[in-house]
Design a protein around this nucleic acid. Structure first.
Length: 286
DNA sequence: AGCTCATGGCGAG
DNA sequence: TCGCCCTGAGCTG
């Protein structure tokens, strides 16, 4: 279940359990068998994450993992190690094992391939080296809805459907507002918020976005229970009352994904594109 | 048993 | 814009 916090959490978990010693590398399912064998028995140096991409460095080689929509990487620290279902890649040492299922990508890559992947990504709120202005430069000139731009990995690597919906709600921004109508101050605030929310999610292994003063339990309502496991304002709360104003939460399709928002808290903007400095002119200038 | 959906992203048209 | 890939969970029948 993969937004960027999951990938970063996995990088930490893999490094903690396996780094600095030889690992057993297999593909019980068989689809990664030849490559898994190439690094089998070699020491695992470290695992690191860029957005939703995970790189596991083993024996001087690297495995690129992208979980996609259905992928999962799970750890177990006990002795019972049956292979259940379709396990593409299993990492194992004396004390732990990790099973990868259903990844969109799992392949051995060289340094050039890693560079090609990371070069195509925008700033990752979970990385110290992130430069948020690179994301802003894509947003400021675009007529694309901000709700779509936030899903673009060149704008903010690691942000997915939950963080997209929640951060827009927290900043009261209509997901359909054009990127070029967003103010720099709003982008800066969104970025700072993503850094905080995503770091929190890495630490907890779940996405919580609801401020204490809006907590449903504290306000005498029933606690929310959702498969994704976090406390959220709008994500997958279709037709339920907004935790802030009580309006029915709406949903629609945007770019093939489900979008959730509160039409009252996130009222459509009346801003106009400044005629004196249209976005297109700015892009041409240097 | 079979269908639908999911925190993604790719390629064909 | 659409279909498709990956896998498992949660329905429906």
């Amino acid at each position: 279940m993969p937004e960027g916090h999951v990938t970063h959490r996995l990088a930490i978990g893999l490094t903690e359990r396996f780094a600095g010693a030889p690992v057993r590398s297999t593909s019980p399912q068989g689809r990664f068998a030849a490559e898994a064998a190439e690094v089998d028995g070699h020491p695992l140096e470290a695992a690191e994450a860029y957005g939703k991409n995970l790189f596991v460095h083993v024996g001087g080689r690297s495995v690129h993992v992208h979980l996609g929509l259905a992928g999962r990487f799970t750890f177990a620290d006990d002795d019972a190690r049956p292979v259940l279902g379709q396990v593409r890649w299993r990492l194992e040492n004396d004390r732990h094992y990790a099973d990868l299922r259903g990844p969109q990508a799992c392949r051995l890559v060289d340094g050039a391939a890693i560079a090609a992947i990371t070069d195509a990504l925008g700033p990752d709120p979970l990385r110290e080296d992130a430069e948020p202005r690179a994301g802003w430069e894509r947003v400021r000139a675009s007529a694309t809805p901000i709700g779509l731009l936030l899903m673009d990995q060149r704008v903010a690597a690691g942000v997915g459907n939950i963080f997209r919906a929640e951060v827009l709600f927290r900043h009261r921004i209509d997901p359909m507002m054009q990127g070029r109508l967003l103010r720099l101050s709003e982008w800066d605030a969104i970025w700072v918020d993503l850094v905080g929310l995503m770091h929190d999610a890495v630490g907890k292994g779940r996405i919580d976005t609801v401020r204490p003063d809006h907590d449903p339990v504290a306000m005498g309502r029933a606690p929310r229970v959702d498969r994704h496991g976090g406390e959220v304002y709008v994500y997958r709360r279709t037709d339920q009352p907004c935790l802030v104003c009580g309006t029915r939460v709406r949903t629609r399709d945007l770019g093939g994904r489900n979008l959730f928002w509160c039409p009252t808290c996130q009222r459509p903007s009346r801003r106009k594109v400044p005629a004196s400095r249209p976005a297109r002119t700015r892009m041409v200038r240097t």
